[in-house]
Each structure stands twice: as structure tokens, then as C-alpha cells.
Amino acid sequence: MRVTVLAIFNRLKAQPDMYMNVFGESVLNDAVGLVLYKVLSAFLGGKAVTGGNVMGGIGLFIGIFVGSTVIGIAVGLLAALIFRSRYFYSGPVGLAVVFAYGSYLLADCIHFSGIVAVVVNGMVMGLYVRPNLSPEAEHKIENLFRVLASLFELFVFVYIGTTLFLQEEQFNIFDYTALCLLALALSRAANVFPLSALVNWLRPPERHIPPKQQFLMWWSGLRGAMAFALAVDAAEKYGVYGRVRRGTAGQGGTAVGGRLVLSDTSAE
């Protein structure tokens, strides 16, 4: 998972650029995956797959992403305006959390992507709020978010791990799991390497993303925190097929050799 890779980077004191490239790509990838899941869920829910509906789905995807970005920017600029007064120069720390979480809640309430909003909000606040904080307040806020991130990532690990022992059903999904891993590797390669080449073309040579970092971005993307969360949602919505997806994402079902055979015979 991403948290494992980043923890290793911290332990080895990896280059900051490599850390930020891997972290930024993976977070934005999670956000895109969540928005895309919402769009595709409309078709899985019974919406006819026609040319017009497909184009509408693409437009919805773009609209959700752009709308979430606007919300993140707006809340971030509001925070910058308030902190610019220097009234909160030494804190309070909780106010920064309110703005960050507020952008997530606002986007989620209007059925946009809270992850996209909070990522963009963090970028804006990092640029325009941080310069208006005292070193002590900046240190406190940074440590607070580090602790919260570690706790939430720990919860994800524990939840995925315990799911393995809480499932009563067993799926024979070795072939399906292998196919998913192959599709993930190919799709990420088609995403990371061409976009990295585009970034390198736009940047001066000293700011190019080297091949080793591109490889790390491709490989470290094979993690499952967001994928597992979406798979849990699919398991609740799409019956046995959704539970197969959950078993593949978090190994909640037992993968053994052979074809895709569902031992759960209950009518869905």
C-alpha cells in the first residue's frame, strides 16, 4: 500500500521530490478512482449504455472533478483570507482542521468528491495559509495531521486484515485476481509513463522526473485502501459479484487456484 511505501521513504530519508511525486500521484489517483466509480455506478444501477449516456457520464465525471476542485480552492482562499489578518498567527490549530474537513464535507454534501476537494484545499492552504502562521503553529498543525493520517491508515490496515477472518463465504478467484493485477499494471503503465513524459517535456531538464521515480510511481500505485473502500460499497450494492470484488481488493474471500467459482449460492 501507499502508506507502506511512504513509511519506507521516511525511514530511508528519500529525496523529497520522490516522496511528493509518489504521494501526489497516488492521492490524485484515489480521487479520480472515486469519481469514476460514482459515474460507472450509474450504469451498473440500470442506466442504459448508449452513446448519449456515455457522453453524459464523461461530462458528469468532468463536472464532478471540476466542481470539487472549485470547492477546494474556494475554501482554501477563505482560510487564507482569515489567516492573513494574523489574528490566528499562533493558532488555533483546530481552525486549520475545520477548513480542511469543511471542504470535504461541503463537497460530499452536494455529491461531489470530498477527496478531490480536500486535496486541492490542502494545496491552496499550503501556499497561502502557511506563510501567515508562526513556526510553532506550523509545527503543531503539521504534527497533528501526521498523527491523524497515521491513525486513519492504521485503521484501514486493521479493517482490511480483520475482514479476512470475518467472511463466511469462499470464492475460487485466483484467475480473476491475476487478471485484475495484470489489468492494474498495464493501465497504470499507460497512465504514469506517458504523463511523466509530458511533464518532462514541459519542465526544464533539472526538474525532470527520472525513470527510477517513474517506476516507483507505477509500482507504488498497486495498493488497495481506496479500492477496498469502494469494493466494500460494491459488496453492499451488487450482491455476490460485489462481494467477489471485495474479496479481490482486500482478500476478504479466500483465493485458491482454478476458475471463478462462487460457493455462495444464495439468491441475489
Rank of each mutant, 00 (worst) to 15 (best):
G242W: 02
N200C: 02
G45R: 04
G52D: 11
R146W: 00
V124W: 07
V39G: 02
L133N: 10
M123R: 02
V49S: 05
I62G: 01
N200H: 02
G51L: 02
V244S: 05
A235W: 07
L95D: 07
A225P: 01
E236I: 05
I58T: 07
L222F: 15
F61L: 14
F165N: 11
Y176H: 05
P131M: 03
T69I: 04
S196W: 00
F174T: 10
A197E: 08
S68G: 10
D233C: 00
T163W: 09
V32C: 05
L260V: 10
L148E: 01
V3P: 08
I64F: 09
L195N: 11
Y89P: 11
V5N: 07
G46R: 09
G242H: 04
I82D: 06
L77S: 01
A178D: 03
R11P: 00
G45A: 04
R203G: 04
I160Y: 05
P135S: 05
A74N: 12
M18K: 11
L164R: 12
F157T: 05
S85I: 02
K212G: 00
A227P: 14
I73V: 15
A100H: 04
S41C: 02
L127Y: 07
V120A: 01
V93M: 08
C109Y: 03
G76I: 04
V156Q: 00
L164D: 00
V66I: 15
P211F: 09
P135T: 04
V35L: 09
V27L: 13
V244G: 04
Q251H: 11
F145Y: 10
L151I: 11
R245L: 14
K47E: 10
V93G: 00
F145N: 06
V116Y: 03
I58N: 03
L105T: 12
G122E: 05
R130W: 03
P16G: 03
S187F: 13
S90W: 08
I8G: 07
K13P: 02
N10K: 07
S150T: 13
E206F: 00
K237N: 08
V54G: 05
G52W: 00
G161H: 11
L105F: 12
L216V: 13
N53M: 01
L262R: 08
V3E: 15
R203A: 15
N132T: 07
R203K: 14
V22I: 14
L230R: 10
G72A: 02
I73E: 03
I58E: 01
L164M: 15
V98G: 02
P194Q: 03
N10F: 13
T50H: 01
A197M: 11
P135R: 07
T163S: 15
E236T: 11
V98W: 03
F171W: 10
V116G: 00
S196A: 14
G94H: 12
L181H: 09
R84Y: 11
G122T: 06
Q213N: 09
P211I: 05
N121L: 10
T50Y: 00
T4N: 10
P204Y: 01
A189L: 14
V244N: 04
V129R: 11
I173V: 12
